[in-house]
Design a protein around this nucleic acid. Structure first.
Length: 270
DNA sequence: CTAACTACCTGAACGC
DNA sequence: TGCGTTCAGGTAGTTA
């Protein structure tokens, strides 16, 4: 089962992190793990100005022209030391010592990332550098989305997961949006009407999941340790073999672009 | 330039 | 019970 933080999960974490961090000074960063922690010690002495999000990336501008960029990977979470009964365990990869507490970055599988970089310099993060528009912003429009889909021969699902046509869609919400818009995950040509339907579906599934503070299967946790409430609302992800709620036929499970993919063979024809 | 591959990581689920 | 194998998956790096 999945536990992948995608845009709604990262946005929910951002909303809890922001009031805890803005205005705080980072005294030091203790990097416990040798994993994907880059230049994190450079954050020492700098004050947090904001906590923003682009796609699945958390971006905290610091004074002095720096940014702390974070990615939860598969299993990353942030917890405040001593809040809600949180006690650090063996999976804490880095700890930010603040002027009023300690923020722990916990990450079982070490796919998460923390990096301090000059503001706006994403040259070491190619996906962030080439990230598509925010799905819930006006820059994400159906005409431009259709144009982007027509610019590649990749199957639509792997193209969505590349983060280039739109930011923040991962495996769960890709399957959900494709099912809603009746687009086959393997489609290499998406017409204007189907592109518009997919555009609307992407926005709907993400907005609804944000309202429920994300989808939790196991590892994803909010800063207060709670899980999201979107799990019971998924229509296809994790429901392989169960009946499609639209047509009643069993949902199929396959692999597209190397990813497990659940879809309806009847509703989502090419 | 794009697209397709692989490595990274480790607990859970599965098979015998 | 216990051990080995397979699976999950986002990103970055490499190769074609």
């Amino acid at each position: 089962m999945a536990r992948v933080p995608e845009l709604p999960e990262v946005e929910s974490v951002r909303r809890q992190l922001r009031p805890r961090l803005v205005g705080r000074r980072i005294l030091a960063v203790d990097a416990v793990s040798r994993g994907r922690l880059h230049d994190v010690a450079r954050a020492a002495g700098h004050r947090v100005l904001d906590v923003r999000r682009r796609g699945k990336y958390l971006i905290a501008p610091l004074d002095g022209g720096l940014e702390l960029v974070g990615h939860l990977g598969m299993t990353g979470s942030f917890r405040m030391r001593g809040e809600d009964g949180w006690v650090p365990d063996a999976y804490v990869r880095a700890s930010l010592r603040l002027d009023d507490g300690v923020l722990d970055f916990r990450d079982v599988r070490r796919f998460g990332m923390l990096r301090v970089t000059p503001a706006g310099d994403y040259s070491a993060m190619s996906t962030l550098a080439r990230l598509g528009p925010e799905p819930l912003s006006a820059e994400f429009d159906p005409v431009g989305f259709h144009r982007r889909l027509a610019s590649t021969r990749m199957p639509v699902k792997p193209f969505l997961l590349s983060q280039r046509p739109v930011a923040g869609v991962g495996n769960i919400y890709a399957d959900e949006a494709l099912w809603r818009s009746r687009v086959s995950p393997r489609a290499r040509h998406v017409g204007r009407l189907r592109a518009r339907a997919l555009w609307a579906a992407v926005r709907e599934v993400l907005a609804e999941a944000i309202e429920r503070e994300g989808t939790t299967f196991r590892d994803y946790r909010l800063v207060d340790g709670q899980g999201g409430r979107n799990g019971g609302h998924l229509r296809v992800y994790g429901r392989a073999g169960l009946p499609c709620v639209r047509c009643g036929r069993p949902l199929a499970k396959t692999v597209v672009g190397g990813r497990g993919t659940t879809y309806c063979r009847v509703c989502q024809r090419r």
